[in-house]
């Protein structure tokens, strides 16, 4: 049995110990159950960002899994914890061009500045090859909010026209 604490911890009201909520990881986690929670913990609390956790997360990005936020959270944690891992960038590239994974693609767009600069430009650029439509426009608008001028440039309407 694998457990994780997403508990509300109570502290005594002394000068040294403020009363506050805390979520305390207690050991290895069942990432699927934790990420299915209605009130979740953060990616960092899933445990060490090692290959074992990555290998737990990858299958959880399956778009067919329920609840709907499970693959979204798994994708977000993969990007947050393993932004430079080729496994992550390969998956992200697939989500951006698959018309059945708009939600995951928007997650990539929202987290684009987490990737290495060159990967970010490449990922953003792949969207410009999509057929014109609402999905492409939504993704393009998201990428345009990147802090990176290079990413902004690659998704600008001028770049698309070229």
């Amino acid at each position: 049995m694998t457990l994780v604490s997403v508990i509300f911890c109570t502290f005594s009201a002394t000068a040294a110990e403020p009363r506050a909520r805390a979520a305390l990881p207690t050991g290895p986690v069942d990432a699927g159950r934790v990420l299915s929670a209605r009130d979740p913990v953060g990616c960092a609390q899933l445990g060490n960002a090692d290959a074992a956790l990555r290998d737990q997360l990858v299958p959880l990005t399956d778009p067919n899994l329920m609840p709907p936020w499970l693959p979204m959270r798994a994708a977000e944690c993969l990007i947050e914890l393993y932004p430079h891992d080729p496994v992550t960038t390969t998956l992200a590239a697939g989500w951006l061009t698959d018309p059945g994974t708009l939600g995951l693609a928007l997650t990539v767009a929202r987290k684009i500045d987490t990737f290495a600069a060159a990967d970010a430009v490449k990922l953003a650029g792949s969207v410009m090859a999509l057929p014109e439509g609402a999905d492409k426009e939504r993704l393009r608008a998201r990428f345009a909010q990147s802090a990176s001028p290079d990413v902004q440039a690659v998704v600008s309407p001028v770049a698309g026209a070229n």
Partner: peptide
């Protein structure tokens, strides 16, 4: 709404119940 729509970004009947 996006987390409730899920990976495909669209609401299935099950998504709507959830």
């Amino acid at each position: 709404w996006l987390a409730n729509a899920g990976a495909d970004g669209r609401f299935s009947d099950q998504d709507l119940l959830l």
